[in-house]
């Protein structure tokens, strides 16, 4: 049963990989990478159940945090050209 869920998630992962290869813009690739990150979190949780080792949930949690930080960092890099400048904020 968990194997079926893992298979579905792997199919999702490979479809997202196709999008990441095709592009065409860098933002398409980042969307695909973000989806791959989400699927990886779910896959880690499912694998935790599949192998009966709940430790994998901690890995999933860490992966989720890394995913969002990574996405924002890549975006900031492509938006401003570096990671240091805070940039101009609009609103308050």
């Amino acid at each position: 049963m968990f194997a079926a869920a893992a298979a579905a998630l792997l199919v999702t992962l490979s479809l997202a990989l196709v999008r990441a290869f095709r592009g065409p813009t860098v933002f398409d690739r980042v969307v695909a990478a973000n989806s791959i990150g989400t699927v990886a979190v779910l896959l880690l949780a499912v694998i935790g159940f599949l192998t009966g080792r709940p430790d994998f949930l901690d890995l999933a949690l860490v992966y989720g945090l890394l995913n969002v930080v990574g996405t924002i960092a890549v975006l900031k890099f492509f938006h401003f050209g570096d990671l240091g400048e805070p940039g101009d904020e609009e609103g308050a």
Partner: peptide
């Protein structure tokens, strides 16, 4: 099982949409 299968189906649907 139903919930997990439904979630898997939605994941694949989203990936198809992504393509």
């Amino acid at each position: 099982w139903a919930l997990i299968l439904l979630g898997g189906a939605f994941c694949i649907t989203g990936a198809i949409g992504l393509l």
